[in-house]
């Protein structure tokens, strides 16, 4: 038997009432790949993420991560398995500081029980040692994303671009093997977007994390992706390299509409 695929979605179906949000979707992602999913609004991109992440239960299909079936597992079990994600409309812990938000990303790697944490303020306690060890890891992430100035601020007081970075930092703190980024550049300025592109490349090149991303900015997608999957109405239009996909007539049609001359 040859080695199983790193990540694989097999004939996935998910509908809400009569609406087929995801229809017979089928793709695989190779290890250390940056893989993009594109499609017009309402194409079912975020629904795919929510299925992978365990927030939705698809009706049919399989989602396999390192040979392990993910469907039927709870979101926290999927996080334990090594998949982290960010959200399209930010799901930060708004009443906590940047530091606490990213420390929460270490939660699953920490083991202290309730009883043990009672001793936290004593330097020699197990809980304090563990806390400090993970604090160091969090500081590395803060350093990596240049969030030092935001460390002790409540995230709700941070500008939008910084909030996006905190969410990325929290996902990185999980030390995942697979990172799902839902529109990481949406709402960012040109400069912030260029930084984001560097970071995503670094995440793959330096940290060796596989990335699946949903993005609307075609320039960014073209720049960053190894392969692209284009979907519309929950079904695959095409899959391939950026050049192939972005020049595909069906993709152009999905984005620009039927009767327009293709000037993309």
């Amino acid at each position: 038997m040859n080695k199983h695929t790193f990540f694989e979605v097999v004939q996935l179906n998910k509908s809400f009432g009569g609406l087929k949000a995801v229809n017979q979707l089928h793709f695989d992602v190779k290890e250390k790949e940056i893989f993009s999913i594109i499609g017009p609004n309402g194409a079912g991109k975020s629904t795919v993420f929510n299925c992978i992440n365990g927030l939705y239960q698809p009706e049919e299909g399989q989602i396999k991560f390192k040979g392990e079936e993910l469907i039927g597992k709870r979101p926290d079990q999927i996080a334990q398995a090594g998949i982290a994600r960010t959200f399209q409309n930010l799901e930060l812990f708004a009443h906590m500081t940047t530091l606490d938000n990213i420390l929460l990303g270490r939660h699953k790697s920490m083991k202290a029980s309730i009883l043990a944490t009672v001793g936290l303020s004593f330097k020699r306690s197990k809980a304090a040692k563990e806390e400090l060890e993970h604090r160091r890891k969090v500081e590395e992430i803060i350093d990596f994303l240049e969030l030092e100035a935001a460390r002790d601020q409540f995230v709700s007081n941070l500008p939008y671009g910084k909030q996006k970075l905190v969410e990325l930092g929290r996902a990185l703190a999980l030390e995942p093997d697979l990172l799902l980024l839902d529109e990481p550049a949406a709402g960012l300025t040109q400069e912030e977007r260029e930084d984001m592109i560097f970071w995503i490349k670094d995440i793959r090149d330096l940290l060796g994390i596989t990335v699946i991303l949903i993005e609307h900015n075609m320039q960014m997608v073209q720049n960053i992706s190894d392969r692209i999957l284009a979907i519309n109405f929950g079904t695959q239009i095409t899959i391939g390299t950026p050049e192939e996909v972005l020049n595909h007539p069906e993709v152009i049609k999905a984005y620009l509409g039927e009767d327009l001359p293709s000037t993309l």
């Binding site: 926290d76 799901e91 930060l92 009443h95 939660h107 920490m110 202290a112 309730i114 929290r170």
Partner: peptide, 21 residues
């Protein structure tokens, strides 16, 4: 500690809390 932070995470966003494990 991690326990207290987890409680606050549930208060602020249970979806994100589940997604981080």
């Amino acid at each position: 500690s991690r326990i207290g932070r987890a409680f606050q995470a549930i208060r602020d966003s249970d979806i994100a809390a589940a997604a981080i494990g």
